[in-house]
């Protein structure tokens, strides 16, 4: 049978809008089942706030299965909370104990302005993808899918980085607010595949330049990897840097020609 967790003190960031000053407010949750997810605990608190005539705490969430990347909470100073390789929505109350005090904040980064309370704007990630995070293959002209055999290890490695859910925890965890893990993951996915070769260097060049426009620069702290719910390895950043250097070299040669 499920047990319950008692006497939780929550310090939650409330902020009306991007330009309004925010502050922590304290809420108590007397009792919650240890089977409940962290977000269900917030649902429960919100129900109480509404019945007290107060405004519900705004937070982003959708699939609650750890796959859509919408949920985005800083829990006790850790992006997505204490459990490694786990998105906020997959964190369960059984990880907490009676009497705990929990600090809940939005993902903070210069490139992620706060919309309201715990909800931030991560659309700069979309800008990075729009600038090159794709393979140009207009609908209709594709050859048979088995025409090009892809060695399993290559395809598996591409899949390892393709798993990125675009949540932004890497940026929130990074002292510089850099997006190299996110960008590196996409580059490592596409640049490893045979289909990704024709645009390989053009892709990395425009994605890195768009990234640099909005995000801080990477100084190899490695905090991102620890916060990533998909445990994407910092190796993708090495690959990103390598391909970017090659791309720059290639374009220098182009210019010289």
């Amino acid at each position: 049978m499920s047990n319950s967790i008692k006497n939780l003190t929550l310090k939650i960031w409330r902020q009306l809008g991007p330009t309004v000053k925010g502050a922590f407010e304290t809420y108590n949750v007397d009792e919650i089942s240890d089977e409940a997810s962290f977000l269900e605990m917030l649902d429960y608190l919100n129900e109480r706030l509404i019945s007290d005539g107060k405004e519900a705490i705004v937070f982003d969430h959708d699939c609650r299965e750890g796959i859509c990347g919408t949920c985005s909470l800083m829990i006790d100073g850790q992006a997505h909370g204490p459990q490694r390789g786990t998105a906020t929505c997959q964190l369960h109350m059984r990880k907490f104990s009676d009497g705990d005090s929990i600090v809940i904040e939005p993902f903070r980064a210069a490139a992620f302005p706060i919309i309201r309370d715990l909800m931030v704007d991560r659309s700069k990630f979309d800008r990075i993808i729009e600038s090159g995070g794709f393979i140009t293959a207009p609908t209709g002209g594709a050859p048979d899918a088995n025409l090009i055999a892809i060695p399993k290890p290559v395809s598996d490695a591409a899949m390892d980085s393709a798993q990125c859910i675009g949540c932004g925890a890497c940026v929130a965890a990074c002292p510089n607010g850099a997006a190299n893990l996110f960008t590196g993951a996409k580059v490592a996915h596409l640049n490893r595949l045979p289909q990704g070769q024709p645009e390989r260097f053009k892709r990395v060049e425009s994605m890195v330049e768009t990234m640099d426009e909005y995000f801080g620069s990477c100084t190899n702290h490695g905090e991102c990897e620890g916060a990533c719910p998909k445990e994407i390895s910092v190796d993708v950043i090495a690959l990103l840097n390598k391909d970017y250097r090659k791309a720059k070299f290639a374009s220098r040669k182009d210019l010289a020609r």
Binding site: F134, A142, N146, K152, D156
Partner: peptide
């Protein structure tokens, strides 16, 4: 059948056998 061709061309990393086929 066209869907699979299209998605592979776009870089969807479907599972593969050791021989490299889908």
């Amino acid at each position: 059948v066209n869907i699979i061709d299209q998605m592979v061309a776009q870089g969807v990393p479907f599972a593969r056998e050791y021989g490299g086929l889908l």
